[in-house]
């Protein structure tokens, strides 16, 4: 029986290993000229991982106070923030701080109104061209899916935010460029956004650069995969169910095949 099961899984295992090799190959390839970001320990990794709520909420603060000046988060609505533990009233208060262009009204005019939970988080620029025009021709990317849009996304974002160092002397950094250890090609348009105590956390956590980077990465991982917690919770149940069902089906198969000569 053990042998048979092994034989059955052999091709699947082979495929698993082969595809693993491919992905690893891509990883190495994607790293290109930049070193691999060091692996971090994230609250949301692993089969049972969940987003560390206080860290996620601090990350939202970092986003609002530091990133939101240039980067949009267009897949996220205020109402989504319920997913990281904000109450309806807190969300309404956040939303009301934003001025949202709505309309046209009965006179055909666009008008501004306070935001409601169903509105998107405000976009710092009216459109992509305006964003590019304000940033030396290169629009700052939307961050909603950033941690899914890079290999080892969370590690990469964290490494990038903490990876600003002085350029090696032999390298000439062009105007409007900044040296970053982990950015492919090293010259990144974004200036170092984080400084120690750049934000003041309400829960008293010391706002070191590393802490801010960790928090905002956790937050951005949530914006990229808001379904993560529900997915893993359901996944455990589904896998347990399928393993039981498969074991039962194996017994059934054995019983039925018993009299075959």
């Amino acid at each position: 029986m053990a042998i048979k099961v092994k034989v059955f899984y052999a091709p699947l295992l082979a495929i698993f290993v082969i595809s693993g090799a491919w992905i690893t190959a891509f990883n190495v390839l994607a790293a290109g000229t930049a070193p691999q970001p060091p692996k971090q320990d994230w609250s949301f990794s692993g089969m049972f991982g969940t987003f560390d709520r206080p860290s996620t909420q601090r990350g939202l603060q970092v986003y609002r106070e530091v990133c939101a000046g240039c980067h949009s988060l267009k897949q996220v609505d205020f109402r989504h923030l319920a997913g990281i533990g904000y109450s309806e009233n807190q969300i309404k208060a956040f939303a009301a701080e934003a001025d949202v262009v709505d309309g046209p009204n009965d006179e055909g005019e666009m008008f501004e109104r306070p935001g409601i939970p169903a509105d998107q988080l405000p976009n710092p620029y009216p459109n992509k061209k305006a964003a590019a025009a304000s940033n030396n021709g290169k629009a700052p990317p939307d961050l909603s899916l950033m941690t899914k849009a890079r290999f080892n996304g969370p590690d990469y974002v964290y490494a990038l935010l903490t990876g600003y160092v002085d350029a090696p002397p032999e390298l000439e950094v062009p105007d409007g460029g900044n040296y970053n250890t982990y950015y492919p090609g090293h010259i990144i348009a974004m200036a170092n956004p984080l400084v120690d105590d750049g934000v003041e956390y309400q829960d008293g956590t010391k706002a070191s650069i590393e802490q801010q980077a960790r928090d905002v990465t956790t937050f951005l991982s949530w914006t990229a995969e808001p379904e993560l917690e529900a997915r893993k919770a359901l996944g455990i149940k589904v896998l347990i169910f399928l393993i039981i069902l498969t074991a039962l089906l194996y017994r059934v198969k054995k019983v039925i095949w018993r009299d075959v000569q």
Binding site: M1, L249, V252, K254, V255, W257, R258, V260
Partner: peptide, 30 residues
């Protein structure tokens, strides 16, 4: 297949009611 030449060693599956129980359980779970 390969196991058919020797007894399974499971007395329970000779018992029709236990076999039916296995089938019913599996069917219900599915």
């Amino acid at each position: 297949m390969s196991d058919t030449a020797k007894p399974l060693g499971d007395a329970e599956i000779d018992d029709k009611s236990k076999r039916d129980f296995l089938f019913t359980t599996t069917g219900t779970v599915a």
